[in-house]
């Protein structure tokens, strides 16, 4: 039997992810041609710095949505980790202690979500709406309306400076490494296969001996830890630890992931598509901003893109009904 029904180039090019990549390239080309100042080196620098937190969080979010679950508490974890980082610094701990401590706290936040969802059998949507309020509430409660801002310059500069003379910020290296790690995890390990199987049919996965609960727990812990890392970055990038940092970012992350071709039903998704989805939102935002368009219009664009990205494949697929496949054709 043949291994593949279609030649390799078709399998590589005719994908949902390619569509997002194409739109990204087109947006880039159009913006460079039309928008004044878009093709300058500063665009790349700010693009990377701005999208970094969303990009980071989008990686574990891809895996979570691929299982058919969701984590809406990520932006609140960013806020809580930012506050923790700031408070530990204020209390005189070195940042090399504050950083891992904040990430650890994020992992604990994720473990709480994951335990409730996986072992408590609670719907992730409801649980993480609750923990969105809870973690944000803790962040705001701990720091009130004040902010911690006196971070050492060596750290805040590190978060924004470029690699030598290039337009690429140093954080690009970290992003690339994490993207690679998550891509391998999802696409080339038994764990990643299990993740997709759970999203397609968690019953079938369970009957194949996949530990669905543990897999979900691991994913939520990852999501919490990476969100906390993004929180530390966010704090250093803006030099300010505040309880309301990154409020509402969860919606941007989910939008980017879905734009990147991950199915909200679970079972389908690829890291390269998600990276393209995040960058697409970033490019549109910075191009429109350079054009003097307000953030409002950008929101309309993102919102519409999100709706279209979900509706379009359904219409293209001839409105195939997603039914319980078991409604028998036999006997």
């Amino acid at each position: 039997m043949r291994t593949h029904a279609r030649p390799w180039w078709q399998r590589a090019l005719l994908t949902r992810e390619m569509l997002t990549i194409l739109i990204l390239v087109a947006a880039w080309v159009v913006a460079s041609a039309v928008v004044q100042g878009f093709d300058g080196p500063l665009t790349i620098t700010y693009l990377v710095l701005d999208v970094a937190p969303v990009l980071l969080i989008a990686l574990p979010m891809t895996l979570i949505i691929a299982t058919g679950e969701i984590d809406l508490s990520v932006a609140s974890v960013v806020g809580l980790s930012s506050v923790t980082f700031g408070l530990l610094h204020q209390a005189g701990f070195g940042l090399w202690v504050a950083l891992p401590a904040s990430v650890l706290l994020g992992a604990v936040c994720g473990a709480v979500n994951g335990t409730l969802v996986a072992y408590g059998g609670l719907p992730s949507l409801a649980v993480t709406i609750g923990s969105l309020a809870l973690y944000r509430g803790l962040a705001v409660g701990l720091l009130g309306t004040t902010a911690v801002t006196d971070f050492p310059e060596s750290w805040t500069d590190g978060a924004t400076e470029n690699l030598g003379e290039s337009p690429w910020p140093v954080v690009t290296l970290g992003l690339v490494v994490l993207i690679a790690v998550f891509a391998v995890l999802l696409h080339a390990t038994p764990f990643g296969r299990n993740v997709l199987d759970i999203g397609r049919s968690s019953e079938a996965a369970r009957f194949s001996g996949v530990d669905v609960k543990r897999t979900l727990l691991v994913l939520f812990v990852l999501s919490g830890a990476v969100s906390a890392l993004a929180g530390v970055y966010y704090t250093l990038r803006y030099g300010s630890a505040r309880g309301d940092n990154a409020t509402g970012m969860e919606l941007q992350v989910v939008a980017a992931v879905l734009l990147g071709g991950v199915s909200i039903f679970g079972g389908r998704g690829a890291i390269h598509g998600v990276v393209a989805g995040v960058l697409l939102i970033g490019v549109l935002s910075s191009a429109l901003r350079l054009e003097g368009v307000t953030v409002n219009v950008i929101n309309i664009v993102i919102g519409t893109a999100l709706v279209v990205s979900v509706v379009a494949p359904r219409i293209a697929g001839g409105l195939r009904v997603r039914r319980r496949p078991a409604v028998g054709q036999g006997s």
Partner: peptide, 29 residues
């Protein structure tokens, strides 16, 4: 259709579904 197979997955992925861990080398499949 509900428990036996992941119907959205390919033949190859379904056949290897239980044997994945054994097939992986250094964690990579």
């Amino acid at each position: 259709r509900l428990e036996g197979l992941v119907t959205e997955s390919s033949v190859a992925r379904n056949v290897s579904a239980v044997s994945r861990r054994r097939l992986a080398r250094l964690g990579i499949l």
